[in-house]
Design a protein around this nucleic acid. Sequence first.
DNA 1: TTGAAAGCGCTAACAC
DNA 2: GTGTTAGCGCTTTCAA
Lengths: 362, 362
Amino acid sequence: MSAADKAPSRRAPTRATRRRPTLHDVANLAGVHVATASRALSDETVSMVSPETAARIRDAAAELGYQVNHVARGLKTKRSMTIGVIVPDLMNPIMPPIVDGIESRLDKAGYTVLLATAEHGSQRAGMLVEAMSARQVDGLILAVALPRDSPAKRVVSLVPTVLVNRGTGRPPLPSATPDERRCAELGVDHLVRLGHSRIVHVAGPANTPSGRLRLAGFHAAFACHGLAVGDDRIAFARDYSIVEGRRACAELLDSGVAFTAVAAANDLLALGCVDTLDDRGLTCPDDVSVIGINDMPFADRFTPPLTTVRLAHAQMGVVAAELLLERIADPTVTVRHVTLEPQLVVRASTAPPRSADGETIA
Amino acid sequence: MSAADKAPSRRAPTRATRRRPTLHDVANLAGVHVATASRALSDETVSMVSPETAARIRDAAAELGYQVNHVARGLKTKRSMTIGVIVPDLMNPIMPPIVDGIESRLDKAGYTVLLATAEHGSQRAGMLVEAMSARQVDGLILAVALPRDSPAKRVVSLVPTVLVNRGTGRPPLPSATPDERRCAELGVDHLVRLGHSRIVHVAGPANTPSGRLRLAGFHAAFACHGLAVGDDRIAFARDYSIVEGRRACAELLDSGVAFTAVAAANDLLALGCVDTLDDRGLTCPDDVSVIGINDMPFADRFTPPLTTVRLAHAQMGVVAAELLLERIADPTVTVRHVTLEPQLVVRASTAPPRSADGETIA
DNA sequence: TTGAAAGCGCTAACAC
DNA sequence: GTGTTAGCGCTTTCAA
């Protein structure tokens, strides 16, 4: 009878306005107290209630189509079982695999992801961090840079946070990143092994860690091969895009430096280089070899199929998720930076230089 | 005095264990009641409190770095300001723009998106819907099919839901979809205009609405041109992938039907067809023209650049978001199905048939 | 205009 | 084992 105490207003549920059943309803139907119902419905506490009442409660719950209210539970337990993920842009081909890796790993641990996109260092990125914090996320995974003095920095020190695809940041946060320098080294090594020595670099934006690190790797690889590289052999892209690749490559061509190969800081830039080469009547790889970084989806189907350095994006997402899980479990754990080994993927955009062109330095 | 009643334990916040400030803290600091603080901090209710106290409260909030707790607020207001979005797979190139469209539109309305991935019709899709419902999402946008008899169907009737990229479903839900039939028609029209008449179709999975609708469109276009098409001119892919495109195309080739053009149900399948043609020593478009559907990212850079039918994915996401917003605002609004017009994009994978090949039906 | 008090749906001591 | 009693942090009547 207690099951119907609010009946007058709930009788004949019009099917459209049916209220979501609460723990109270379940308890009433089963003829027990809410607390007992709560215990029976949670795996960690079922043991506290007798098997038969537990069964009765479960039946009642099933009959009503009861579902716990995570929000109410979270208010009490202080855990929302949701993780905020902020990426710069889903259209960037490296992001989907990262998000997918994060999501699949987190899902296994029972977490749901709150996803949002914002440009690097934008005001919006900061706002999103705050919005997510207000939603009581249990953790944050950031693939974006926060503005330097953003108030969001405060929340980052309050909720467990890890960085993915970019490692720097104040304060130091755990991170899962590719070995950026090694990417560039791998590329240059490949080019040198092919016989190139007149190599130029289309560098990523100077204001991104990856841009800077890949440039450093480029220099390091050169030094390692006993080659020198002047500033005239480097052109900076303003962002990672095909158009910037085009522009930077044109800049290099126009500058008059002679080169037989270009190592671009990512695949999009490499694609832009191929375009410019094409525009100028040069063919890749016959006249100039081009190598990128990322091995973006379908890079094997471009014209020409792109030689590149593959980054394990999905795995990076998985690692970031694990780093976060670890940190949520124990916030005092040492911050770790895990770096993923890149892998050279040779396709058709690189070839030995024509004649012995590459044997001498320009 | 009440301002300091918990002080002993909170004095000298160790900076590591600092508790998140609550409305209570703000009220205490400002010397008002929580209710007043609540009113002062919400735009709709500021008018109820005197300007000077409001200012005092805002200052206190700022000083403490106070942030509302959306979870607690949601418990009371029954609105979480989050929307659940379930997609089959982020790696599918059409999904990122859809999600991006959804997210950007929803963000403008103050909503955050809870994203998850699950295969079509999988048990997991149902579980996710329930998990999201348990998290009190204010709405759901589904790009996946739910299992027929899933208990999740019940929640779909409880929380405002719209479909994106796929329109059918029981019960009928608002949807934003491409005009699937028209896609296929556009493709066939283009091929016929080029002079082809021996055309085959690599159909999408028969268990997907898009597969079926595009097939219907293929038939309709044929009929419209006064051409007949037997079942031997159609091969079904088991999913939308390059390998299935390869297989289906090989099947057609092996069956012995003569054709000069293939209309594939999507770009991935088209790419597979190009591969198989290549394997058999046939070149596209010289020997056989191939057309896809989607205009996936970088379709213009494939070998050969793919002629295809473009779908406005990002806009579809935006429309889906708007449909949902509309439905949240008024759940009794008529369910609308908005269909987006596709657009032919001619590139290099289609050309007139060699000689007068195409003039006669096989 | 502000304060008091109730309560959203749930969990967690603490009794019995 | 199960019921009682407090809240979690917020909003919202209802009084004053």
